[in-house]
Simulated assay, not measured.
Amino acid sequence: MITTLTTFILPKPVTREEARSIFLSTAPKYRGVPGLLRKTYLLSEDGRTVGGVYFWNSRREAEAMYTDAWRAFVREKYDTDPTVAYFESPVVVDNVAQQILSDAAA
């Protein structure tokens, strides 16, 4: 399993309400994406940084998301370039599903 962290440093801060509106406008784009288990949108306290935490089945599926087209979409939507960091996620605790997931079980 892979977790990615995307961040975008904004040219000007946004409020929580502005961020929520922007996030809701882009959320449907991520429904049904192959390998994407969950996405959580992020907003820094000062409103200058936004991004997302994505939980993926595999790195291959994650890399399929972060294309030049995706980067262009981010650039147009947020007027900034994104950064993407990849992390191995060998164990995940899911308190909603009441499960502990391990990539060894895959």
Rank of each mutant, 00 (worst) to 15 (best):
I9Y: 00
Y41K: 09
L36D: 14
D103N: 15
A27D: 06
Y78A: 03
T49G: 05
S25C: 08
A85P: 07
S58V: 13
E45C: 02
E45H: 06
F55M: 13
K29F: 01
R20H: 02
N57A: 07
D103Y: 15
F8Q: 09
A64S: 15
T3W: 10
R71T: 14
A97S: 12
W56L: 04
T6H: 04
L5K: 04
G51D: 12
K77W: 03
Y30E: 13
S25G: 04
D94A: 10
R59H: 15
F87C: 08
L43D: 04
P13H: 00
P82F: 07
N95M: 08
P82A: 12
A106R: 01
S58T: 15
V91W: 10
R31L: 11
I100H: 06
G35Y: 15
R71W: 08
E18R: 15
T80H: 02
P11N: 00
S25E: 00
Y30A: 14
I100K: 05
E45V: 04
E63Y: 13
I9W: 00
V53G: 03
T26H: 08
T7E: 12
Y66C: 06
R75E: 14
D94L: 02
S102C: 08
Y41H: 07
A62M: 12
E17M: 01
G47S: 00
R31G: 13
K77E: 14
D79N: 07
Y66A: 02
K39W: 11
E61K: 10
I2Y: 15
I22V: 08
V96Y: 03
Y86P: 03
Q98V: 02
D103F: 07
V91S: 03
P28Q: 01
Y66T: 06
